[in-house]
Amino acid sequence: MYSIVKYDSSYRSVWNDFVARSKNGTFLFNRGFMEYHADRFEDYSLIVFKGTKIIALLPAHINNNELYSHWGLTYGGLVLDFKVKLPGVIEIVRAILNCLNSFEVRKIHIKTIPSIYHIAPAQEFEYALFLCKAKLTRRDTLSVIENEYAIKIAANRLEGVKKGQLNNFKVEESTDYHFFWNDVLLPNLQHKHNAKPVHSIEEIIQLKNKFPDTIKLFVVKDEKGIAAGTVIFETDTVAHAQYISGNNDKGKTGSLDFLYYELITKIYKDKKYIDFGTSNEAQGKKLNYGLNFWKESYGARTIVQDFYEVDTANYTLLDNVLI
């Protein structure tokens, strides 16, 4: 009933068209986004056909004969057509596992698409993974504001907002990625976490040029220049904070508090969700208390993103599920 085809560039257009009309895909699965790091991963994405119609995609790469949701993407999993139903997804997962097993790909590693990114309910894949005894290997927490049921912003955050107002800060969308990266983000990450951003300045500009309506840089400015900024990835349902950073004096000036107050109460007040992302380290087993505290003081609360590992030989466990 289903045929599984490995993606190649001849499918680029139909792949992107399917992502755009799927019920749980985002622009991260557009080939223009996925391929910015094509040199780092051996792509092994799969396309699922029912007859001549595409009904699902699995963005993935292969490493040491095991299949992975792309390490370069925040989330992965099965991207689904609006019309596909649970029994169909169970059969699709069986077909994918069987196909991979026949090619001696022994395991798949999945990082799921958080439910807030779904346009319509789309957790059929997670149920199918449970049926084939997928192992939960990691669970990250995401700090999320649901605007329809917004929780009051904490007093300590509002104090920072008042500082920002006294400093005559203004929030605006900016194209000055070089300054934000080199003078704000990189020094802050290096000083606080001895880390670098996932994207280089060249990569984020390349992605911004490809997706100008979904990748945006917002900054706080005064007469001295940029004091803080954040890069937002926009989807149909979510404004996701990909990067957040301020100058060393952000606590005194209130620059970061002022920036996010403006984003939450004005710029993205009509977006269904605002996702601050994870505060986890050590594969989900540690929580950065201070970072999580800052996010929750804006009214964000927790949802989880699960990571699974499953043996492809377990496709037989899906044989007699439907009764």
Rank of each mutant, 00 (worst) to 15 (best):
I110C: 15
L186W: 00
I323R: 12
N248I: 13
D275A: 09
N248V: 13
W294P: 07
W294N: 07
N292R: 08
P212W: 02
R21T: 12
L73Q: 13
A56W: 04
E223S: 15
D140S: 10
S143I: 02
A239P: 11
N156V: 10
E296S: 07
I116V: 15
D176Q: 09
I205R: 09
I47M: 02
L67S: 03
G51Q: 02
Y289D: 02
Y177T: 04
Y36F: 08
K216L: 07
I274N: 06
I145P: 03
I204K: 08
T316L: 07
F18Y: 01
N30R: 06
V219K: 01
F33Q: 08
F82E: 15
K210H: 01
Y261Q: 11
P87D: 07
T235E: 00
Y117F: 15
K6Y: 00
R94D: 13
N247Y: 02
V144D: 10
T312R: 01
V220F: 01
F130C: 03
S69Y: 05
P212L: 00
N156H: 08
Q165L: 03
K162E: 12
Y273Q: 09
R106T: 14
R21M: 08
H199Q: 10
V321C: 07
L186R: 05
I232M: 15
E146L: 01
Y268F: 11
K216S: 02
I113S: 14
L129G: 00
C132R: 04
L322A: 08
E296L: 03
L73I: 14
D270E: 14
E124R: 09
G246Q: 10
N188V: 01
I145F: 03
T230S: 14
Q283T: 07
R40T: 00
G51E: 10
I267R: 03
T302G: 04
Y117W: 14
A300I: 05
N209A: 09
H109N: 14
I303F: 04
S255E: 06
D140A: 11
K224W: 12
L158C: 01
T230N: 13
G77L: 02
K53H: 01
Y36H: 04
V105P: 12
L189G: 06
R139K: 15
G254R: 06
G290Q: 01
E146C: 11
I201Q: 06
E173S: 04
N101Y: 14
K107P: 11
F82S: 08
S45C: 00
F18E: 04
L100C: 12
E281H: 13
N247G: 09
F179D: 07
E202S: 05
A239M: 09
A122C: 04
A150W: 12
